[in-house]
C-alpha cells in the first residue's frame, strides 16, 4: 500500500500508558490534522513514526515497508518538532547544506527565498537564534526538503501573527506546487481548521476520531434553547457536552439527528471544529 500505516502502536513511560493501540493510515498527498490536548501523546506518536523513539508494541509501515532502522523509509519523512536536534554551533546555511546532502533532494533556492521572506539570517549560528527563528528555520527545512511525508509538531510555536500568516501561505503554496502529505499537530485548531482535509484526534492515548473534516462537521450540531425543551429534543442522541446560562442551554451533539420534530423554540446550528474538539476531549464533563 502507498502511504503510511500505523498499526496498533502502544507506548508506556514507566507505568503510564501514553499511547494505547493507535492505528490509522496516511494517504499520499493529503493534509492531516493531528489534534489532542497537551499530554495526549501526539508528540510521542510522531516521534515513534519517525523512529526517534521505539514503540513497546505495534509497527509503522511506509509504502508497505517497516520504517524501523530503514534509511529508505526514514529518508522519505521529515519531522519538525520543538526539540532542536541540530548541532548548536552550526550556521543556518551549513545546516541547509547538510540537510541537502543527507536527504536525497532539497530545494535550496526555495529555502533561501523563504529565509529572505522570514528575515532569517542564514549566516547566524543556530544556537544564537531566538525560539521563533529556530522554529522558522525548521519550518523552512520542512518545506524545502524533498520527502513525501512531512510532520509538523506545533509548527507555529513562538511565531508572531505575521509570521504565522506567512507560514500558512507558504505551506499552501508549497503544497499546491508539489502535493505531498502533511501532518499538522497543533492546539491552535482555528488556524488550521480550513487547511486540514482529514482529522485525527487523540485523547488519553487513544484515537477517538479518524475521518474527513467535512464528514465530521456534517454531523456536529449545537442544539440551543430552553433547557427543558433542549433536553427533551436531544434525548437518545449522542450528546458530547453542554453549556448552560440561566435557563438557556446549548447541547452539543455528535452524530445524526434522525428525523425527530424540532420544537419551535429550539434552534439547531452547526458546530465548528474547535468547539467539537473541546467537547470531545474534556473527559465527558459538562461545562455547566
Amino acid at each position: 500500500m502507498k502511504g503510511i500505516e500505523v498499526k496498533q502502536i502502544t507506548k508506556r513511560y514507566g507505568k503510564k500508558v501514553i499511547l494505547n493501540g493507535i492505528g490509522f493510515e496516511l494517504e499520499p498527498n493529503k493534509i492531516y490534522g493531528l489534534l489532542g490536548r497537551n499530554g495526549a501523546g501526539k508528540s510521542t506518536l510522531l516521534n515513534i513514526m519517525t523512529d526517534r523513539v521505539s514503540a513497546d508494541d505495534g509497527e509503522i509501515r511506509l509504502d508497505g515497508v517497516d520504517i524501523q532502522d530503514n534509511d529508505q523509509q526514514l529518508g522519505n519523512m521529515y519531522l519538525m518538532s520543538e526539540v532542536d536536534l541540530y548541532p548548536k554551533a552550526a550556521k543556518v546555511s551549513q545546516i541547509f547544506k547538510w540537510t541537502a546532502q543527507l536527504y536525497n533532494g532539497f530545494d535550496m533556492e526555495l529555502a533561501m527565498k523563504l529565509a529572505q521572506k522570514f528575515d532569517l539570517d542564514v549566516k547566524a549560528q543556530f544556537s544564537k537564534l531566538s525560539t521563533g527563528y529556530r522554529t522558522i528555520m525548521k519550518l523552512i527545512i520542512a518545506l524545502s526538503v524533498q520527502v513525501e511525508f512531512i510532520f509538523l509538531d506545533e509548527p507555529v510555536l513562538g511565531l508572531d501573527a505575521n509570521h504565522r500568516d506567512l507560514f500558512y501561505k507558504e505551506l499552501v503554496q508549497s503544497y499546491s506546487d508539489n502535493p505531498r502529505t502533511f501532518v499538522i499537530s497543533t492546539h491552535l485548531i482555528e488556524e488550521v481548521a480550513q487547511l486540514i482535509e482529514h482529522v485525527l484526534v487523540i485523547d488519553q492515548g487513544r484515537l477517538i476520531i479518524d475521518d474527513e473534516t467535512e464528514d465530521i462537521l456534517k454531523n456536529a450540531y449545537m442544539i440551543s434553547g430552553a433547557e427543558e425543551e433542549v433536553d427533551q429534543y436531544v434525548d437518545g442522541l449522542n450528546v458530547i457536552g453542554s453549556d448552560k446560562l440561566a435557563s438557556l442551554k446549548a447541547s452539543y451533539v455528535f452524530g445524526e439527528l434522525d428525523n425527530r420534530v424540532i420544537p419551535d423554540r429550539v434552534s439547531i446550528d452547526k458546530m465548528d471544529l474547535q468547539t467539537l474538539f473541546i467537547n470531545l476531549t474534556n473527559g465527558g464533563q459538562n461545562n455547566e
Binding site: 501561505k169 499552501v172 503544497y175 499546491s176 506546487d177 488556524e191 480550513q194 487547511l195 486540514i196 482535509e197
Partner: peptide, 12 residues
C-alpha cells in the same frame, strides 16, 4: 485555486 487557498489558508 492556489491564489485563493494561499490567501485564506484553505486546503486547495
Amino acid at each position: 485555486t492556489t491564489e485563493i487557498s494561499r490567501e485564506f489558508h484553505i486546503n486547495p
